[in-house]
């Protein structure tokens, strides 16, 4: 067996649409990232609430990369968006500090920054159908999230 990140990424399946974003870890870019992902998602017939949920989840993952991943430094953040017939996949990757204990970080209210609330990852869990984090201290973090979509209606 291998130690490659195991999430429900659909090896072999071809997405209907695929977009990659690569940007500097600036707070201004958080809004850019969630708007871009929502634009891809809105190629499907989604409710306003579903789009809001996707936007918030992307906002949390990208903010974490800026705040915790790169802390006082700066680096690149990559967002990979894949739109499948029945699912939207978003992967946010940074090459920052990494997470020592992922289990711990996922628990609500757990944070390494006392000025924060430890809310972001719980929000992603709440708003998306799948969340898988892989990380190596000193190397970076990969946050995989997915949301089930009703299959596109065909005329």
């Amino acid at each position: 067996m291998q130690a490659v990140p195991q999430d429900k990424s659909r090896a072999g399946r071809i997405p209907e649409n695929e977009v990659q974003l690569l940007f500097t870890s600036k707070p201004e870019n958080v809004g850019f990232a969630r708007t871009a992902v929502a634009l891809v998602a809105s190629q499907r017939d989604l409710t306003v609430d579903q789009l809001d949920e996707i936007k918030v989840a992307v906002s949390e993952a990208v903010s974490n990369a800026v705040i915790h991943g790169y802390r006082d430094t700066s680096g690149m953040i990559q967002v990979d968006v894949k739109l499948y017939e029945d699912e939207l996949e978003v992967v946010v990757t940074d090459k920052g500090t990494g997470i020592e204990d992922i289990e711990w970080a996922m628990q609500p209210t757990n944070t390494t920054d006392k000025s924060r609330m430890g809310l972001g990852l719980s929000v992603i869990k709440e708003f998306m159908d799948d969340l898988t984090i892989t990380s190596r201290p000193g190397a970076g973090t990969r946050v995989y999230m997915a949301k089930k979509l009703a299959p596109a209606s065909r005329p």
Binding site: R34, D52, K55, V56, S59, E60, R116, M117, L119
Partner: peptide, 13 residues
Amino acid sequence: TSLIDSSGVGAIL
């Protein structure tokens, strides 16, 4: 207000 994330929640609190 169309969106509030955890940073926004922190500021409100």
